[in-house]
Design a protein around this nucleic acid. Structure first.
Lengths: 341, 341
DNA sequence: TAGATCAGTGTAATCGATTACATTAAGCTT
DNA sequence: AAGCTTAATGTAATCGATTACACTGATCTA
């Protein structure tokens, strides 16, 4: 009935012990007598005690949380990674703070910098490789700011641990597959070129093409990973004099926008043009034609990021902790690619 | 260089004022002289002061955060709502704590109950209508626990504010559309029947059918909103002696799994069967055939949930605050539905 | 001009849990 | 049995920001 909040003091009085004992009984049960433990637990139960997180955080100088910088939550690519992060964080008794780096409130380094403080987070996972440089270069104070790891994209100065998909190899697998099918003129719809994922995939694709002496792709078009940009790429493709017989799209979403628009305009996939995507999103296997693509383990990216972070937090970091952890990719062959006739 | 954390005390000493003045200059700048403000700001700047969130939370007895209970982050439906929540929360200077209610760590009411404490959150948004009853019935202490609002699904005892899509009307629009096209035998692939969204949509659909004296649907199949369950529904549909000429799927994901499998088996959509979905996910307009569906404003659900919550937090709640806020839906007609021939 | 008002600032209490250090009592050693 | 070790508990300091209350001096009122 009483509106007053129940503190450890109330529990102590109720159980007839000191506050120190209550704290101990609750957080390190083995450090008190079974009898005391029992009576404290009962007291906590019957008073309806709930620990005050802020008080604990203040005293212990840690927050029990990790913050995750996400560029775009509505993008299923990121939300899957986030899902992996959440699960792994829960397993490590951390809760997760979500910060959208594209939110207008967070458009400047200042707004984000405050999360780089141990009173906010025990650690930080960054999914956005395009944060203001200033943030990690000047606002990050080693030894004071909490550990940081990159969870899929990353920024050039490799001074933080990171996990990433093997983007180069993924692109290589895609191109090799197309070349293996006899394609000679292979186009590439890239992601935005300011993004590392895009440039890595582009580099991988170009390297694969070069290896086969097939020359650079005849046609290259910059998208932004969105379905709409895939559609636009298709519009452009349709105007081409000599159309590539195969196109590698740097994301499934673009691949689907691309195929959809082509089919609408009477161009058949894979009969007229083969298409390979990247990501293996859920819809890929159910689109018609089912999309040949590069599978990447998104939940696993999230989990690995948490594991790296926990190592850094607990100081178990390996010597080469900053060497990027690269997760394997797989080529999934479906119906959108076909040998050239 | 010094490893010691910089507190308000250091800033005070540096600026030659008291800690109280520093606090005031930082949080209510108008309450101090321009001159003091300037020197405090400079002192903060040059000492590299960062406010300790835990200390502030403890003293102010609030957390500056809202927690969101999400059943499944990898589901784009929820992640879009979450995106809306994040944006709106940022606008209100709240950060968001993410809690996955399906995580094995959170399988019991105890684990979730701790977030129902003002030391964790100034408010709680629940996207999962299927939480343990116990949680909100016994563990929630009005006046002590922070305000709660439901952000899309909800639980029967309507003692909390809620936002929801007009699921009944959405289903009615879908069915009416099909009836208008001359369909007489209309099937329904429902969501899981323990879920309110499913039962509401089912009720709406049945009401619409009844209104047209068309009787109950000849065929009804329970899915779980997933693409795989849509595929299974298709398998079942194919075995039917007299196949419905139209099927309403309670989610776009199921609709796509359903259509995909049908098409694979030589059944044409919309020539042989019309299909209507629900949600209007991104892919809906690009799938082939483009999916006729019920559009719901997912980001807006999130925003509204935050608005309701802020009202509750600030005590501006309207008298009828607990009356559910119902967001409108729209029928989007695309290529997956067609008049009966 | 005495008294009231008010803006600006300082002093010190406060939020609630943790934990260093002190204390007590019980068990052990020789 | 005196001295030592150890387990269990208590006392009180501590984490860092906010804010109630007190104080000062300046401006205003009658």
């Amino acid at each position: 009935m009483s509106r007053k909040t129940i503190t450890i003091k109330d529990v102590a009085r109720f159980a007839g012990v000191s506050t120190a004992t209550v704290s101990r009984a609750l957080s390190r049960p083995s450090s008190v007598t079974p009898a005391t433990r029992k009576s404290v637990l009962e007291a906590a139960q019957s008073t309806g005690y709930q620990m005050n997180q802020a008080a604990r955080n203040l005293r212990k100088q840690q927050s029990g949380a990790i913050v995750v910088f996400v560029p775009d939550l509505s993008n299923p690519f990121f939300s899957h990674i986030l899902s992996g992060i959440e699960a792994a964080a829960a397993r490590n008794d951390k809760s997760v703070f979500l910060v959208n780096t594209y939110s207008p409130q967070n458009d400047n380094a200042d707004a984000l910098a405050r999360y780089l403080s141990s009173s906010w987070a025990d650690g930080v996972i960054i999914l956005d490789g395009s944060l203001p440089k200033d943030l990690l270069q000047n606002r990050y104070v080693p030894g004071v700011s909490p550990p940081v790891v990159f969870g899929c994209e990353w920024s050039p100065p490799d001074k933080f641990p990171s996990v990433r998909t093997d983007n180069r190899r993924g692109a290589k697998l895609a191109i090799d597959h197309l070349i293996g099918l006899g394609h000679k003129n292979i186009g590439h719809v890239t992601g935005p070129l300011w993004n590392v994922l895009s440039t890595e995939r582009l580099a991988g694709a170009n390297a694969a093409l070069a290896a086969h002496a097939a020359g650079l792709p005849a046609w290259q078009c910059e998208g932004d990973f969105s379905m709409a940009s895939g559609t636009q790429a298709a519009t452009q493709y349709l105007t081409l004099d000599t159309r590539p017989t195969a196109v590698f799209c740097a994301s499934d979403t673009m691949a689907i926008g691309f195929m959809s628009e082509l089919i609408k305009n009477g161009v058949s996939v894979p009969d007229d043009v083969s298409v390979v995507g990247f990501d293996d999103i859920d819809i890929a296997e159910r689109f018609i034609p089912a999309l040949t693509t590069i599978h990447q383990h998104r939940e696993h990216l999230g989990e690995s990021a948490v594991n790296l972070l926990m190592n850094a937090i607990n100081g178990n970091a390996a010597d080469d902790a900053n060497a990027p952890l690269v997760l394997p990719v797989e080529l999934i062959i479906r119906d959108s690619t076909k040998a050239i006739s």
